[in-house]
Every structure is written in C-alpha cells, then in structure tokens.
C-alpha cells in the first residue's frame, strides 16, 4: 500500500512539475493543482497509512485510531490551496485580458533595463 501511495505522489509531482514549467498560464494552474494534490497526499501519508480506523472516538471502549494531526493539517491545506488556485486563476485571467496573451514568460524586450538612477543623474 505504501508503494502505491508513494508512486501516486511521485506521478502527481512529476506531472505537476512538468506542467508548471509550460509556457502558458493555464497549464501552470493545472500543474499547481496537481502539485497541491501531491503535497496534500504526501502530508497526509506522514501519519500512518491505516484502513478502517478513522479518528472518530468510539463510544464502545478501546479502539485504535489513525493519526488525526496530519488530517487536520491537510484539511486546511486543501481549502487554502483552493484559495491559492483561485487567486492564480484571477491573476492569469487578468493578465490575459490586459495583454491578450497568457504567456507567463517575459520577452527580452519587455525586460527593459531599469531607469538610470546612479550618481551621474545628479549632475544635471
């Protein structure tokens, strides 16, 4: 089972990293979504992998439970990653609508040098 979860995390990471390095905004967002899956599952797996032991206290005396802490952390992580995805989507949309292109890289020409602000300017 560990192997299965680990391989799933690995494949999700690989796909996420590959998509994140694409040149357009939408694949990058997809890649980040995949990466958040991978990270969430990874964090979750930091507790023990168990079946049929949900961390819901049983009223019938002794029972064993899985580690609840990673679950709590991952729960908020899932919600926060939604918020992050939403902001990214908004930024991507905004830049697409402003510039009519959803490229994420700046061209050489757009990377204009900074205005000259050293001491020479003072003399004038």
């Amino acid at each position: 089972m560990e192997m299965i979860v680990a391989s799933a995390v690995g494949v999700l990471t690989a796909a996420g990293v590959y998509l994140v390095m694409r040149l357009r905004a939408f694949p990058v967002i997809l890649g980040l979504a995949l990466l958040s899956y991978a990270v969430n599952v990874f964090l979750f797996s930091a507790g023990k992998l168990t079946t049929d032991m949900p961390p819901i206290l049983s009223p019938y005396g002794e029972a064993s439970y899985t580690d609840p802490l990673p679950q709590a952390l991952v729960l908020t992580a899932i919600v926060i990653s939604f918020g992050m995805t939403a902001v990214l989507v908004m930024v991507a949309l905004g830049s697409f609508l402003e510039s009519d292109s959803d490229r994420i890289n700046l061209g050489r020409s757009e990377n204009a040098p900074m205005p000259d602000d050293d001491g020479e300017g003072d003399a004038t």
Binding site: E2, M3, V5, A6, S7, V9, G10, V11, L12, T13, A14, A15, G16, V17, Y18, M21, R22, A38, F42, S45, A46, K48, L49
Partner: peptide, 22 residues
Amino acid sequence: RDGAIATAAGGAVAAVAYTFMR
C-alpha cells in the same frame, strides 16, 4: 529537459514518501 527534471522530481518525492511511510 522539463520531462527529465519532472521525472527526477517525481522519483525523488516518491522515494522520500515511501521511506517516510515505512
């Protein structure tokens, strides 16, 4: 290039995850 980097990253994360879980 990206594929190679991504595969390496995936493999590394999988290895870490597996090692940790065991």
